[in-house]
């Protein structure tokens, strides 16, 4: 093959990766449609799309991190912690909500959830970029710290005394079909796509994951860049916490448990490489859709809930395996 031909083949393969993922998604939807008449209902659409927002928000953060050759195992625990701190502040400072305007309380809660997420992300980034602790270790440690702390706050109890407006907005569907969390997530997704694919920050995220030494030698402040990447992941976990709270009108210390598995699966199914330098927001959106449809679809057809986690685990491993096979075959040609 000439280099020209190789390039064209490569582009086609890269483009076809998203096509393939989309095909798998359609196939899964078809199976569930056949198995349950409820799958194509409005109620399931609203439930599935809202569930997807949480997975996608974490997945987007994870996309940045994984492209930069890192991993954020603490994303789910950060979600739990952000929600619990925010919930506890709103509950302790403001409830009952006739003493303080409900909107003010909610606004403070929103800022706190985002701030806690951002803070955890910054700590992760500091440990990894400046203290050179491997991302796997730093964020695994943070997973323990953040989830432990979210249980400590209330001795493991959920907090339901948060401003009702959060639940009302979180469950509001514009024109009956489009949940507010979906709109928020769509905006975030577009911004994340733009930053990753069109800006210098995005370009350097790819370069840093592909060959960190090359970027460092070019005089780029790689540590600050990495810090920012983990901060983005933390901030989006804080936003996901708000979505979760809005949905259930409750802050729960288990809100994000296991969510890091979903987020990583989402990114990998979307075609990112855990070795860095590869991945797209478009792929992650498709990956999030697959993970979500599997989760909600399995419930609809009456499979016991524990099977969901098992299924996501299997799909994650299968996606990595298939991608590796494809790479090996491409290399042999």
């Amino acid at each position: 093959m000439t280099t020209e031909a190789v390039t064209i083949t490569v582009k086609r393969v890269a483009g076809s990766r998203n096509l393939l993922t989309a095909g798998v998604l359609v196939a899964i939807c078809l199976v569930f449609t056949v198995l349950s008449p409820f799958f194509l209902s409005q109620a399931n659409w609203i439930n599935t799309s809202t569930t997807m927002t949480q997975i996608l928000l974490l997945g987007i953060g994870q996309t940045y991190v994984i492209i930069a050759r890192g991993i954020d195992l603490s994303a789910g625990a950060t979600l739990s912690l952000s929600g619990m701190v925010s919930g506890a502040v709103m509950y302790n400072l403001f409830a009952p909500y006739d003493t303080v305007p409900e909107g003010t309380a909610a606004l403070v809660g929103i800022i706190i959830a985002l701030a806690v997420g951002l803070l955890v992300g910054l700590v992760n980034g500091f440990l990894i970029a400046y203290l050179k602790i491997p991302a796997f270790v730093a964020t695994l440690g943070m997973l323990g710290i953040a989830s432990g702390a979210s249980y400590l706050l209330t001795n493991g109890q959920s907090l339901s005394g948060i401003p009702p407006i959060i639940g009302e907005v979180g469950n509001h569907n514009v024109v009956g079909w489009i949940p507010v969390p979906v709109i928020i997530t769509a905006v975030v997704t577009v911004i994340a796509w733009y930053v990753l694919s069109q800006t210098r920050f995005g370009e350097r995220t790819y370069l840093l994951g592909d060959n960190p030494d090359a970027v460092i030698r070019a005089g780029v402040n790689d540590r600050r860049h990495l810090l920012t990447v983990y901060a983005i992941s933390g901030l989006l976990a804080g936003l996901a916490a708000l979505v979760a709270m809005g949905r259930l009108s409750t802050a729960s210390p288990t809100a994000g448990s296991g969510a890091e598995l979903q987020a990583i699966a989402t990114v990998v199914i979307g075609g990112a490489s855990l070795y860095g330098g590869r991945g797209t927001i478009g792929g992650t959106v498709l990956g999030a859709a697959i993970v979500t449809v599997l989760l909600t679809g399995l419930i609809i057809i009456g499979v016991p809930p524990f099977w969901q986690v098992i299924t996501v685990g299997i799909v994650l491993i299968a996606a990595v395996f298939l991608d590796q096979q494809k790479e090996i075959r491409a290399a042999r040609k």
Binding site: L207, N211, V215, V220, G277
Partner: peptide, 18 residues
């Protein structure tokens, strides 16, 4: 060489000087 293998020639030409 300090090249990024998964990026194209243009990206590599401009590492740090985008």
């Amino acid at each position: 060489l300090a090249l990024a293998p998964q990026r194209d020639v243009v990206s590599n030409f401009f590492i740090g000087k985008e």
